[in-house]
């Protein structure tokens, strides 16, 4: 056993993009190897849950936990890794805010199953996961699929948050550098609960597009815009851009290439409810006083929940719909 501090990374309800982003940090991964012992990282090396269970409490220095808490296995691992780690980082949008899987919080469990097993599968329709199944070798079990997606901090105590879907590799690199500096006594950890690897303002702050006083008369989706003005604020062009409410740190990559910010870096520092903020902001700049016209303009917003809460529903004040929990 080496003397190096231990590092772990785990994925719960997520797509795997966060892992790729970590691997994408390039040669910095060698610094990770030089400074840490990788104790547990299912995507990179084989390990069993029972190995983690056997580790002494707090024996892992740093755990990057990505993915939301969708089922009981996710919850179990969250609790386990919390117990074994000194620093638990809620890594990426799913762990921090629920992300796209969190949008399932608008639907009941049965609706989620129906979508998964009755429409997008070629299996026999109508089958449902069975939590326990008898086979000759014994009983097989599946983790309970919870009614709603929860974020990591809704299940366990979290030390730091790192937003992004996925976090940008340069930000991951910077965070790793920081932890290594802390290890060598050259830096101090930020206060517990801080958001790391991101800025304190919004995407607009990093966006180079020209901004004017906003007056919107029509919302358009990207494919409906014949020619995107290359320098003008996208919102002013009627393209719903979540940049104004989204935490900076990504470098405003999307708007730079003409794609609206989807909001993956989550709410800016002082935004309590991301979607509500965006909705009040966007409706404030509709250029009409005629209720009917305003309705008509708003009707152009396809899927408001998916637009304004795409990454944030599970961590919003709303959290979930009554349909989902009943």
């Amino acid at each position: 056993m080496s003397e190096k501090p231990k590092f772990a990374m785990y994925w719960a309800a997520s797509c795997g993009g966060c892992e790729i982003a970590v691997l994408n940090i390039g040669e910095k991964i060698l610094d990770v190897d030089a400074n840490f012992d990788v104790a547990f990282w299912p995507v990179a090396m084989d390990a069993k849950y029972k190995d983690v269970e056997e580790m002494p409490d707090k024996s892992i220095l740093l755990t990057l936990f990505n993915g939301g808490i969708r089922n009981e296995e996710n919850a179990h691992m969250a609790k386990l890794l919390r117990q074994k780690s000194q620093i638990l980082v809620s890594f990426g949008s799913c762990a921090t805010e629920g992300c796209v899987p969190g949008l399932a919080n608008l639907s009941s469990r049965e609706e989620v199953f129906a979508a998964a097993y009755d429409s997008i599968t070629s299996d026999t329709l109508g089958i449902r996961p069975q939590y326990s199944y008898e086979v000759p070798e014994g009983t097989l079990t599946l983790p309970i699929f919870n009614t709603i997606v929860r974020t990591l901090d809704q299940v366990v105590d979290v030390d730091y948050y790192m937003p992004g879907c996925p976090p940008e590799s340069h930000q991951i690199g910077a965070v790793i550098d920081l932890v290594i500096q802390v290890l060598h006594g050259q830096a101090e950890l930020p206060p517990k609960g801080s958001v790391i690897g991101a800025g304190g303002s919004t995407v607009c702050d990093e966006c180079g597009r020209i901004r004017n006083v906003k007056k919107i008369t029509k919302f358009r989706r990207l494919h409906e815009v014949a020619e995107i003005d290359p320098v003008l604020c996208l919102l002013e062009q009627g393209i719903l851009c979540n940049g104004p409410a989204t935490r900076d740190g990504c470098g405003a990559l999307c708007p730079a290439v003409g794609a609206p910010c989807a909001g993956c870096y989550g709410p800016a520092q002082d935004v309590v409810d991301y979607g509500a903020r965006l909705m009040t902001a966007v409706s404030s700049v509709i250029d009409s006083n005629d209720p009917k016209e305003i309705d008509r303009i708003l009707d152009d917003i396809v899927d408001p929940a998916g637009t304004f809460y795409r990454f944030n529903l599970a961590h919003s004040l709303l959290h979930a719909s009554k349909t989902a929990v009943s």
Binding site: S201, T202, C233, P244
Partner: peptide
């Protein structure tokens, strides 16, 4: 306005 947090998006400007 907290100037540090204001990104100058100008959404509020005409309100």
């Amino acid at each position: 306005v907290d100037a540090q947090k204001c990104s100058g998006c100008r959404i509020c400007n005409d309100l």
